[in-house]
Simulated scan of single mutants.
Amino acid sequence: MATRMKAVRLHAPGDLRVEEVEIPEINDHQVLVRVRAVGVCGSDPGRVMKKGTYSYPMTIGHEFAGEVVKVGARVTSCKPADRVTVAPLIPCGNCDYCKTGKFNLCDHYSYYGSRVDGAMAEYVAVEECDVLQLPEGLDFESGACTDPVAIAFHALRQGNLKAGESVAILGVGPIGLFAVQWARVMGAKEIFAVDIFDEKLEIARNLGADHVINARKEDPVASVLARTGGAGVECVVEIAGSRITQEQGLRMAKKEGTVVFCGISYDDLIIPSATLDGILRKEIRIVGAWNSVFSPLPVNEWRIALHFMARGLIRCQPVISHRFRLEEAPEVFQRLWKREEFFNKVLFIP
């Protein structure tokens, strides 16, 4: 086995380089994974180009799948040649939230690609607790999408969506497109997909959305209300992370409905008095959705995601729009940051 590898390393915001580095060593509780596919999260362009990571240089990338090549002396759950995906959050295991199985709410977590070296490389060292086996027949590219698939599932669970109810999904990038599919699997009566790009809305329609709304061409609140007899929808999932769609989501919710804020926002949300009055009078429930649940109990959303992906009920291939080599990463992130062309789920194939 070689001792050096290619890795995409961030040296400062906007300073992304493809370098040759040492293949990481592993301790007794870690696993060395040969990366077969790694995705670009919607948060990655902003982190790479503006926000930065917690230390430098840092190998980026946290959505990935690959093949186990080496395991630590105390690892028992996997072995070399296993096909795996990896949850990106590294829980401390000691805080109150970890002790109750809520790893996504860990007080002292670490994270691949921002706090420790990630997977936009040929190899990555990961903790055993984060490793999940890929079901037989599920390809590595789909395996690399498990994180956004699980995030979408978690958001709908937070929204308490029930069979026979209507849902509006605001923002149909990859997570939104997976949310459309989950809503169909979960028995939604009517699915509204809202975005500002026709290309994304067409994919949403093909994946199960009943109504697609381009918010540049029509008022999404008026459109949802018109199609629901003025009542609104029982569940709204906001994934765009825009203060515009956040406020719109509050206005299109039905009485006693739930609005889930899932998209990462970088702006203040100022709620107009009329919208606030609607929250009070309609008794709307507002809830956050952060990451996803991958602890063994009570519900492992990652295992559920893999189950439905393996059976073709949640499809990843229609969401993937681009595939690149690691060497192309600096130029690709410039293009992603400028937003001058259409991208959906972007994968790098080491």
Rank of each mutant, 00 (worst) to 15 (best):
I196V: 09
A226H: 13
G187R: 07
S114A: 13
Y112Q: 06
L177W: 02
A204G: 10
I239C: 10
V185W: 03
R205C: 06
V180D: 00
A204N: 07
G143M: 05
N206R: 11
N206M: 14
F103K: 00
G171T: 10
I244D: 13
T146E: 06
T245G: 05
K99W: 09
I196K: 08
M120P: 08
G187I: 03
P148R: 02
V180Q: 01
N104V: 13
D210E: 12
R184S: 02
E190H: 14
F192Q: 01
A193S: 04
A163F: 07
L161R: 01
R184E: 08
I175C: 01
A231S: 15
A152G: 04
K217S: 05
E122R: 07
I239Y: 02
G137P: 09
R227E: 04
F140N: 00
G230N: 06
E202T: 08
A215N: 10
N206P: 08
I169V: 07
L156F: 04
C145W: 01
F103Y: 12
N104C: 08
V124F: 13
Y111S: 08
A226C: 15
V194D: 01
V131M: 09
S242E: 03
M120Y: 14
G164C: 09
D117Y: 07
Y123W: 05
F153G: 00
V167A: 03
V126A: 12
G137W: 14
E218K: 15
S110H: 05
P135V: 10
V185Y: 06
A231I: 07
I244V: 14
I151S: 02
V237L: 12
A240C: 13
V149Q: 02
D210P: 13
A226P: 15
A155W: 01
D130N: 05
F140S: 01
A226S: 05
A231T: 13
R205L: 08
Y109F: 12
E141V: 03
G232C: 05
F153L: 12
V172E: 03
K200I: 12
L201Y: 03
Q133T: 10
F178R: 00
